[in-house]
């Protein structure tokens, strides 16, 4: 009892210290919280409200709030094809970007470790495309892949493409554009994990009877999971909602329309705000669920 009596004030001093620390933390968080409230939560609430509106009976182009849940059913019915296509394209682009970026990041982060200068030069080359607007770069690809461009004429000369075939306006061009545009987002997180990869662990694997392929599968790949997870998220999430690559002004066509193009057209062309809002909310919800399942399953908490 005497002991608890003595420890009493000490504990309360600790608690008040913690409370003071909590207050400072709260103060530091305030700008962030305010930012989120103003620029994320408020538009989100407004979007949810818009998604439940119905067209006004009297004034064209005006909408009234009526708790119209059917908006969601309608957009799913009308645009299910585009929704599925978006996620398929995003998935393909993510896989291709990963397949392309992993060897590249490994080369820069591991093989080139002994030459830091070359390493930074290569990293600059990966980031260099950011110096030009991605709209311009995508337009440039449209030129390169156009029917009169070098790629199509070469493929036609080799009889790999028929005389009536195109590349622009096809799903191939859209997935290509998405892959191309998101490679730096995949490459940089992969590089940061691979750059920290402890080569002594690779040596330990080789010492313990694991050949190069087995060492990669059992040691290198699991250790680079944090980079793979953040890279794929940084690619998949924006790619699923992308509306530039699939737009018919860029690399897409009518057969390759993605959800982003549908939302854009509903908001800006058809002025059907409730449908556009409902699609946006839907897109966000699906991505949240997919990402949640993905992060849980990849189990990277231990590594972070």
């Amino acid at each position: 009892m005497a002991l608890t009596a003595f420890t009493g004030p000490v504990v309360s001093a600790d608690a008040s210290g913690a409370r003071r620390g909590g207050r400072i933390a709260l103060l530091l968080l305030l700008p962030g919280i305010a930012y989120l409230l103003l620029f994320f939560l408020a538009p989100l609430v407004s979007l949810v409200i818009t998604s439940l509106q119905t067209p006004s009976e009297t004034v064209f182009g005006q909408y009234d709030f009526t708790f119209n849940w059917q908006n969601y059913g309608e957009v799913i019915g009308t645009y299910s094809e585009q929704i599925l296509r978006s996620f398929l394209y995003a998935l393909l682009a993510t896989v291709f970007a990963l397949l392309f970026s992993y060897p590249l990041a490994y080369f820069i982060g591991v093989v080139m470790r002994r030459w830091p200068l070359v390493q930074s030069l290569l990293l600059i080359l990966v980031v260099a495309p950011f110096f030009i607007s991605f709209l311009l770069r995508t337009l440039a690809w449209k030129q390169i892949l156009s029917d009169e461009g070098p790629v199509v004429s070469t493929l036609k000369a080799l009889a790999l493409l028929g005389p009536q075939d195109h590349i622009t306006g096809t799903p191939i061009a859209v997935v290509f554009g998405l892959t191309y545009n998101f490679i730096p987002f995949m490459c940089l997180p992969l590089y940061t994990t691979l750059e920290r990869l402890d080569m002594r662990l690779i040596e330990a694997g080789r010492d313990l009877y694991a050949g190069p392929a087995t060492t990669f599968r059992t040691v290198t790949l699991p250790l680079s999971m944090p980079g793979i997870v953040s890279g794929t998220l940084l690619t998949f999430i924006p790619a699923a909602g992308d509306y530039v690559n699939a737009s018919s002004q860029f690399l897409g066509g009518t057969s390759s329309t993605m959800i982003g193009n549908v939302i854009q057209s509903n908001f800006l062309v058809q002025l059907n705000y409730p449908a556009a809002a409902a699609l946006s909310i839907l897109l966000m919800a699906i991505i949240l669920v997919l990402v949640g399942v993905y992060v849980r399953r990849s189990g990277t908490e231990d590594l972070l």
Binding site: E203, G211, P222
Partner: peptide, 18 residues
């Protein structure tokens, strides 16, 4: 190395963290 009948106890331990 993975074909040699040899094992090493590394100075840095080199245990697999995952």
């Amino acid at each position: 190395p993975f074909r040699r009948p040899v094992n090493t106890v590394f100075q840095s331990y080199a245990l697999f963290p995952h």
